[in-house]
Design a protein around this nucleic acid. Structure first.
Lengths: 335, 335
DNA sequence: TTGTAGGCGTTATCAT
DNA sequence: ATGATAACGCCTACAA
């Protein structure tokens, strides 16, 4: 039904090639001809078919974004950055949230074909050996966000430092018994960030001569309910921690709920630190580690576009800094 | 680089047509041949090119989702519903958040072409006359979510009832001075829901013999900061309201911040009601009107797919119910 | 500078 | 049941 390049050519009285040249701002077109063609284009309200162009060019004009739980506030922020960076281009972003292993395998398998996408952004997913081979074999540009892999370009935040900042802050406040609540590391999804944050925490505590007992590190589901349960378990112990570091703001909220349930005042009886600095963190006065979520998205796109354009992807690893934001859920350790 | 249907045909020693038939589970192909073709497909790890299929079929296998501020928690929930409903299909969803009029016009113009998308979901956008004509002329199936238009199929919630529920609740608690805080109705985006909610509020109050003075209806930016400012203005008046109805939970949070700033206790001095029942509403104990955000998304997809399949789109208007969720930000009116 | 023809990978039509 | 062939709409050589 819509006009095709042939219709335009006919109306303008030129060949299709000429129309194509005008369309793509190519040289070697007589100004008068160009003018005539443009009028015809306007006349017919012609817009070239993306599909036909894709097939002809062998490019898809699409980038695929894949990751688990893309509706979490932190992921939404990253996606938002991706969209923002992409809106200046003519590329489509197709994002898929994968919650199960089967979906992940199927979706990545589908996404890592050059006829499917020009580029791939993996959020929170470190490709398996098979997936990596596929990606490399297909030669499809791929950037990881908040995930680690030696062989692939990636935009990460300094999670170890995040853990360190949190621990040092609590140490400065006099806390000695510190707990950590994160999610269970799903085998299929390499939730490395939680591990790295914990590593940072442990490192700082150790250098202060403090060990963090195993029973003070609890992992549950990555959501408020899961964290609440974990925190309740933690606080029910013999000598419960006086401060808890959560792997995300959402989980920190679960910890706050647990404190409320146990009748603990925050921060007088219990200090709580989150991670991410999502929008509501400010509202509830949550002390947290701010990470540049939006920027990880824009940077991933910038790097991906660069790689597609042929830039050297190195250095592979780009680390964005994190920052401690002190609000009102942390205070001096109780005596 | 990847295998094509021709490679498969050659390897299996058949024609391309036969491979295509096998691919699409068509009858009239000898079991033995089918077997042979399938082996060749597996052998070459062949996956048909989506692009080529699109061009040949004249379908895009894509649905476009357009709306303003798609990163707001409520919109994210809707998108999440859309994605969920779509994940069972092989359709791609390309969603675009439009924040300015130019972008809106350009994006909808682009999206409402059949060669661009098989269907269109407009969130929070009622098409202008021009846009409507375009959509109808193009014959592209389109479903509205949380937006109203006589001529188009739409999935909405009962916003008037939402306003009524909120007002009645406050009335029952003895409130007589009730304020309303919403966002400014941007001309280009028909934020009708806020208007409808207010209408419900006014209706109930009027039937109780209460008028809501103009200065108790304030509109600002649709976010926490905007609502906070609006609420501060509202509370600074001569006889400030004892209860405030916000057009969204996010705005309700701004109202709560304002109360905090003014040293007002909630709900003893001021009652606050939100709208949406987003995830954090529960955490902060916000009384609110719950609307089925996720379901509006899934329903929109279901209806769109139906329409694409040729179903009668009528009845055009599908209304989903809302429900009052009483938590701890509302209480008896102060004496 | 400009028109023509071939190709991108698939599906559909039409013989056989 | 199956193979050849013509679309689908664009881009890019190549020829003129």
């Amino acid at each position: 039904m819509p006009a095709t390049i042939g219709d335009v050519a006919r109306l303008a009285g030129v060949g299709r090639g000429t129309v194509s040249r005008v369309l793509n701002d190519r040289p070697n077109v007589d100004p008068a001809t160009r003018e005539r063609v443009q009028r015809a284009i306007a006349e017919l309200d012609f817009v070239p078919s993306l599909t036909a162009r894709r097939l002809s060019l062998g490019r898809t004009n699409t980038i695929m974004v894949v990751g688990p739980f893309l509706t979490r506030p932190s992921a939404v922020e990253r996606l938002s950055g991706i969209q923002a960076a992409l809106s200046a281009t003519s590329l489509d972003a197709v994002s898929t949230s994968v919650e199960t292993t089967e979906r992940r395998v199927a979706v990545i398998r589908d996404a890592s074909r050059p006829e499917r996408a020009d580029g791939l952004i993996l959020i929170h997913i470190a490709p398996s050996t098979i997936e990596l081979e596929r990606i490399l074999a297909a030669g499809i540009p791929c950037v990881l966000v908040d995930a680690h892999h030696r062989r692939l370009p990636r935009v990460v935040v300094d999670d170890v430092d995040g853990g360190q900042l949190a621990a040092r802050h609590l140490l400065d406040l006099g806390h000695k018994r510190i707990g950590f609540i994160g999610e269970v590391p799903l085998a299929e999804f390499g939730f490395s960030s939680t591990r790295l944050r914990l590593r940072g925490v442990v490192r700082v505590l150790r250098s202060a001569g403090i060990a963090i007992p195993d029973e003070h590190v609890i992992r549950g589901e990555h959501n408020r309910e899961g964290a609440r349960l974990s925190a309740l378990a933690l606080l029910a112990g013999e000598r419960p921690p006086t401060a808890i570091i959560a792997a995300s703001d959402t989980e920190a909220m679960g910890v706050l709920e647990a404190a409320r349930i146990r009748g603990l005042r925050v921060p007088e009886d219990l200090s709580v630190i989150g991670y991410d600095d999502i929008d509501v963190a400010d509202f509830i006065g949550l002390t947290t580690i701010r990470q540049p979520l939006f920027r990880t998205g824009t940077r991933a796109v910038e790097r991906l576009l660069g790689i597609i354009a042929g830039d050297d992807p190195r250095p592979l690893r780009e680390v964005l800094p994190v920052e401690l934001v002190v609000r009102s859920t942390t205070g001096p350790a109780p005596v």
